[in-house]
Amino acid sequence: MPPQPGAPVLKLPKCDDPEVEQAALAAVDHINQHLHQGYKHTLNRIDKVKVWPRRPFGEVFHLEIDTLETTCHALDPTPLANCSVRTQTQHAVEGDCDFHVLKQDGQFSVLSAKCESTPDSAEDVHRLCPDCPLLIPLNDSRVTHAADAALAAFNAQNNGAYYQLMEIARAQLVPLPASTYVEFAVGATDCVAKEVTDPTKCNLLAEKQYGLCKATVAEKLAGEDVSVTCTIFPTQPAAPQPQPDGVAAPAAEPAAPAADAAAPAAPPAGQPPHPQVL
């Protein structure tokens, strides 16, 4: 039967149609722009798509997409294109998302979004890599202790600002040597690390400076062995500053490890800020 005059007509384009991919990428951008914890996600597969006309103008894309966790934390300003996908041997995490994306005047905007994330199964991880550690709950006492011990060790060695814990982002129990691996986000405060007596009185800086720490804490007979490396991201101003005509704003750079940086130093004038590894 031909459609009634004026009735909406459903389109079923191919999932890899370039216009559908554009809608899916707009959806993934939306996820990452509204993410305040955990890790950025990247598009893995477009599962289903339906396109409805929208009155009076435009089209609505109903998309079901699969995403994968990257190694870039939500607070990391590295562009998604420069973020690596978390490998299966690191215990990958998948996202299942349902989106409504409006296309109007050539622009895509997200109308609704619903996502759920799930880690890969233990069987799948161990099928690929029998000895690889699995993710464990972030509120496990061994994890919270490892994050606290690692942050204390980091602040004790740090000559600059006192960093406070923002979020424990992932954790694994490593069998040999028996240890806890933890990744956690930190934020710079208005206290000096060497002078802090009461951390509860420290406040996050107005010009936000975040970082991601990776630590391994191993229990030993004579105490514990703490190893921690923190990558401090470039500062993130609250509002973009106006730029003179013809001068581009500094672009964010990937958080590539520097060789050795004992203390944060301001980049030379005119150069974009780099992450610091401490």
Partner: peptide, 25 residues
């Protein structure tokens, strides 16, 4: 009559789901 596809022709690509960009879990 059924007309066989020409020899060497690529099989039709299903419209959905799309390609896997990294790996499937």
């Amino acid at each position: 009559f059924l007309i066989p596809p020409p020899a060497g022709a690529a099989p039709p690509v299903p419209p959905c789901p799309g390609k896997i960009r990294h790996f499937k879990i």
